[in-house]
């Protein structure tokens, strides 16, 4: 599927560029996106190193296991195929907690660590496993308690009430979050019935 999505984006893009006569601009955009990707990775890299270093300490000192044991009753419902008290649970919890608190740049490293743990349980290393997709469903539709970025954006646009949207954002985001989890669960169950 991803092959088609990726090719589709490129091909329809190039088709429209040819039809609309902005081929030059589109090519330039492709090149600048490629260098932007490198800059973005450099930015992520520092934070990844910092949090991966912290996580290694947490792992070896047993903190990860303590946390995993604490939350395993809840997490087991969301990730039924992950063995109880697996260290993946602690990374998942830190990932969700960081998302909730709006610490986006800490959420990613925790999430990636969780992916790493889940990959060790994955029978097909090039294919997404069910718990991985659940984790991604949680992250793409993340619940935000405090949309700091939007608030500062509203403030700079001269809003009389920059925080007026907090309640609505929380609610909309929770609905998206619950919907994502329910849909993920429905598809997972259907695939299980088909014997995958």
């Amino acid at each position: 599927m991803l092959n088609w999505v990726w090719f589709g984006l490129l091909a329809t893009g190039m088709f429209f560029a040819a039809a609309g006569g902005n081929m030059e601009q589109t090519t330039a955009a492709a090149f600048s996106a490629a260098s932007d990707a490198v800059l973005l990775i450099l930015e992520i890299c520092g934070l990844l190193c910092l949090w991966m270093g912290m996580l290694r300490i947490a792992e070896r000192s047993g903190l990860v296991d303590v946390l995993a044991r604490l939350i395993s009753p809840l997490a087991r419902r969301l990730f039924p195929s992950v063995p109880p008290q697996h260290p993946a649970f602690s990374a998942i919890v830190m990932n969700i907690a960081a998302n909730l608190l709006g610490l986006g740049n800490a959420a990613t490293p925790f999430g990636l660590k969780a992916m790493e743990y889940l990959q060790t349980l994955n029978p097909q290393p090039d294919t997404a496993s069910a718990p991985m997709i659940t984790l991604l469903a949680m992250n793409t539709s993340c619940i935000t308690l405090l949309p700091t970025m939007v608030i500062s954006l509203r403030l700079s646009a001269g809003s009389a009430e920059p925080t007026a949207i907090i309640g609505a954002t929380m609610l909309a985001s929770s609905i998206g979050f619950v919907f994502a989890l329910l849909l993920d669960r429905a598809i997972r169950r259907r695939e299980q019935h088909r014997g995958r």
């Binding site: 599927m1 992916m115 294919t127 991985m132 997709i133 469903a137």
Partner: peptide, 22 residues
């Protein structure tokens, strides 16, 4: 980012869930 970090190339239904949730 998440799938890239562990070298997953086949996303299965992940994109469907993500976009439907959006």
């Amino acid at each position: 980012v998440y799938f890239g970090a562990v070298g997953i190339k086949k996303y299965r239904y992940a994109l469907t869930v993500g976009l439907a949730a959006d």
